[in-house]
Amino acid sequence: MQASISAATFKLADQAALSPAQQRLEAQLLTFITAHLNQAQPGLFVIHGDAGTGKSAVLAAAFSQLQARSRDSKPTALQGTDNYLVVNHNEMLKIYKRLAADDPDLRKKDFQKPTPLINRLTKQERQADVVFIDEAHLLLTQPDRYNKFTGQNQLSELIKRSRVVVLVFDTRQVLKLKSYWQANDLQPFLDQYPHQTFNLDQQFRVTGNQQVVDWIDSFGQGHLLPRPTDPNFDFKIFADGQPMYDLIRQKDRHGGLARMVATADFPYVVNHGTWYVTAGSLKLPWDKVNLTDDPWALRPETLNEVGSIYTIQGFDLNYAGVILGPSVGYDEVHDRVIVKPDKYEDQEAFKNRDDLGQLEPLKRAIIFNSINVLMKRGRYGLYLYAVDPVLRRHLLAL
């Protein structure tokens, strides 16, 4: 996904912008949809890939192609099909709707959150033809009264109400127990329905070399590699948050889309005043509830805030200043990065469930997932500050 200051923090890539692998994927997708549209069972097409591998870009490009054929005046196998792209993420939904305005083949109503679409199709007793699901790892896997979802699993409900389902799935981006997916949780669906899978493994967002990508991946597995060097990627570790913020402001002045983000380690209650993130001498407010149609990273005033995983997941920044909060530490005895769920302030992420077995390992996985999401936001630079003094010392010593 390419950064674009004027349009969005990711853009719907045109055919020329897609890599050879992405072009193959787009062609396979449209062939699969055409072949399975009128079969007895729904067809599933699963796209795997880590953060930054261009999953949303190719999904959006293929959906635009699908809608162009659906709305074409010339008769084709896809003409007149009723199709939707759903994402269980408010900020990403805003991006899709914003970009729909610039594409003659797309309508804002083509993009939905999963629960309203499920409820509407159920009420109307009808099936959609094709449903694309971006960030399917964010789909609920239990009922949720807050979201008015009464079923047990949103993916299951969407499959029941569709002829073909195309989903993007990455278990390393699961951020809550109520939408907890493990690597084998898709298997029962694959066993039941005809399917294809495709894996995207080329990193498109982080422009750093393999050293940079390996360093981030290893951190998420608890290991500190030697400090990566890449003349074309700005990787810096800070002893204090204020100089990091000063550099982010400077980068934003020169090229835009530079923002501060943090792990969910600082108290925050929705609609109850202003809550702050602290990083050494730096003190900035958390991101506010965004009631506008503009995504968080595109609003100039958010340069004075700290974004969360829920604000920034799925989006490109040019430069990301990442604050690793108190839940991220270092075990000097075993020489590894550790996470401490008891210090993680996002209690909504850890709402207890009695159907997942031991929750502590899952909670640790969620924190490491959130770190992976945050560290892979910046296309041209990653800046780090660790609140935990032991981890900070080890990072600075690299």
Rank of each mutant, 00 (worst) to 15 (best):
Q242F: 04
Q182R: 12
R145L: 13
G314H: 00
Q358F: 13
T207Y: 07
F45M: 01
F169K: 04
L391V: 02
L93G: 02
I5L: 14
G314N: 03
P267K: 10
M92R: 08
V328S: 03
N318C: 07
K288R: 14
V206Y: 02
Q28D: 15
S4H: 13
L359M: 09
I366C: 06
I237T: 10
D342P: 02
K363Q: 15
Q211D: 15
A62V: 06
I47S: 05
P267M: 10
N369M: 04
T171K: 13
D201C: 10
P188N: 06
P20A: 07
E305G: 02
D110W: 01
W275F: 07
S281I: 02
D50S: 14
I237N: 08
F198Y: 09
R259S: 10
E305C: 13
D170K: 01
D191M: 12
G381V: 07
N184M: 09
G255D: 07
S4Y: 06
D265Y: 00
L374I: 04
H334S: 11
L382W: 02
F368N: 07
F315I: 04
G222L: 04
Y383W: 14
E26L: 14
F204R: 04
P243D: 03
D191C: 08
D50Y: 12
D170I: 01
Q203C: 11
L247P: 09
P285F: 10
H137K: 09
Q23C: 12
M1R: 10
L140E: 09
